[in-house]
Each structure stands twice: as C-alpha cells, then as structure tokens.
C-alpha cells in the first residue's frame, strides 16, 4: 500500500518512505491553551512509520512525545498540519469517526494499565469488540484467543485487582490487539513494572511485531527499553531531534532466558 506524497512541501520536506507507509504525520502543530498561556506541545513535527516497524519514542517530559502519541492514536487532533493513517487524512475526521479508527485500527497500552475496574479480564479484553458490534459469542472467542497470546488463559475470570501489575499490563495488551489493529501504541508500558516484568512485556511486543507484522510504537523514558525497538525517535521542544535505527537491537526472549529466574514469577 504505497501512496503518493502530495507535492506541496514546505520548509521541512518529508522523505518518501521506502516500503509500506502506515503513518505519515506532516508538520503537525498542537497548541493548548491553559488559561491565558498558550502551550506549544508540537511545533511542526513530521514522522513517517512503515508497516511492521517497531519504533521507540523518547524525550524529556514536555517534549511533545505524548501529544504525538495521542495524535497518532486518534485520541487528539492536530491544531495545524496533516496526519495520514494508511493513506487517509484523519486530521479532518470528526469525533465519531476517530472513535471508529481507535476501535478498529489502533490498540492502546497505557502506563497505568487502564483496565475497567470490577470487570473480569475477559470482559476487559472484549471491550473493543463490544463497540465494534461483534456478537457476544464471537467476542468471547476472540478475547480468549487474545488472552492466550499474552499467556493469561487461566486468568480470564480474574478482576483487575486480583492480578499483578505485569498480568494487568498483559490483559491490556490482549485488549489492544483483540480487534486486529494495524498499530499498537504503548505509552510508557513498562513505567509501572519491575525489570523482569518489563522485559516480559517487551518480549510480547517483539513477538507480535515479528510474527504478525504489527506496527508498534512505544513511548519510554528508559534507554534500556528503547533498545528493544528497531528505531528510536528523540523529541525535544515539540520537534523531532533525532531519528535513527537501533544499532545493536536487544532480543527480549534472549534477555529473559539469561535472567536469573525471578523469586516468585510475578504472581
């Protein structure tokens, strides 16, 4: 799915991507108004991501990386600039259309897991399918499948408060991929997890990326974690400062194998 780049480039030309472009953000600005002060979260940032890439976004807080994630995830719209998702200009979409995109094409994973409380793991995973209008039987089938992918088949009846942090995050990952999205966006997915659990989560992401050719974008503070991605994008002051491939990419499965087995396997 190669699409043509419009011939109206401004001061910051976007390089045509080699391969299947899935995300193309062009000179995007985002300005928030907090009282009388205008906050410029993004100042003309451009980014292209190909299908099947694993990108880590880094940068200090306030650098605009979370805003960029929100725009890519269609939770937010840019003040200025364009965003093409699989060739479609979604920066002009309305709230309902954006909701549909989040439902079918994007999966979210958050630092704080964001599972619906007092609702079982299975039902949490079913949630996107509910809004996609999938029948109850099919929802259960697909939710079980997604839980199996993250290795939580035996925990489907548990409520979020009966699960460890790592397990909750795995439920969240299952939820993010249950509707077969094109992209998974993870905002500091390991921020609330210990080292071993973090690597386990990265192992799942690497596996999904490799086996299903899923495009994965994570925001992280930790340099360690960014090394599991194939490409690191550095944000500063609302712009992209550096964008380079990871030289010596880490394999989470390998790291896990070499780790001393944990005391109580995150139960």
């Amino acid at each position: 799915m190669i699409e043509t780049v419009p011939q109206q480039h401004g001061e910051q030309p976007v390089k045509p991507a080699d391969g299947d472009t899935i995300i193309r953000v062009e000179r995007v600005y985002k300005t928030y108004r907090m009282g009388d002060i205008e906050v410029h979260a993004l100042r003309g940032a451009s980014l292209m991501v190909n299908r099947g890439e694993f990108v880590a976004i880094m940068g200090p807080s306030g650098s605009g990386k979370s805003t960029m994630m929100n725009i890519i995830g269609c939770l937010d719209r840019p003040t200025k600039g364009q965003y093409f998702l699989e060739g479609e200009d979604v920066s002009v979409f309305g709230k309902a259309e954006l909701a549909d995109i989040r439902n079918k094409r994007v999966g979210f994973v958050f630092q704080s897991f964001n599972l619906v409380p007092r609702t079982s793991a299975l039902e949490n995973v079913e949630l996107p399918l509910l809004y996609a209008g999938v029948s109850s039987k099919e929802r259960v089938r697909r939710a079980r499948e997604a839980l199996a992918t993250v290795g939580l088949s035996d925990r489907e009846k548990n409520m979020p408060n009966q699960l460890s942090g790592g397990q909750q995050q795995r439920v969240a990952i299952a939820r993010s991929l249950v509707n077969n999205p094109s992209i998974i966006l993870a905002d500091e997915p390991t921020g609330a997890l210990d080292t071993r659990t973090s690597v386990e989560v990265m192992e799942i992401f690497q596996r999904l990326n490799r086996e299903r050719n899923l495009t994965i974008i994570i925001v992280t503070h930790e340099h360690d974690i960014s090394q599991y991605a194939g490409r690191v994008v550095q944000f500063r002051d609302g712009r992209i400062r550096r964008d380079e491939p990871v030289e010596d990419r880490k394999d989470a499965a390998e790291v896990l194998a070499n780790m001393p087995s944990s005391e109580d396997d995150d139960e």
């Binding site: 709230k95 079918k104 964001n114 619906v116």
Partner: peptide
C-alpha cells in the same frame, strides 16, 4: 471518568 476515558480510547463513540 477514567472508565469513560478507557471506553472512548478503545473505540466507544460519544453517542454510545
């Protein structure tokens, strides 16, 4: 509020 946010993030339209 947070639950509403989660539901919206996974694709619930405002009308839902």
């Amino acid at each position: 509020t947070r639950e509403i946010g989660i539901r919206m993030a996974v694709g619930a339209r405002p009308s839902y």
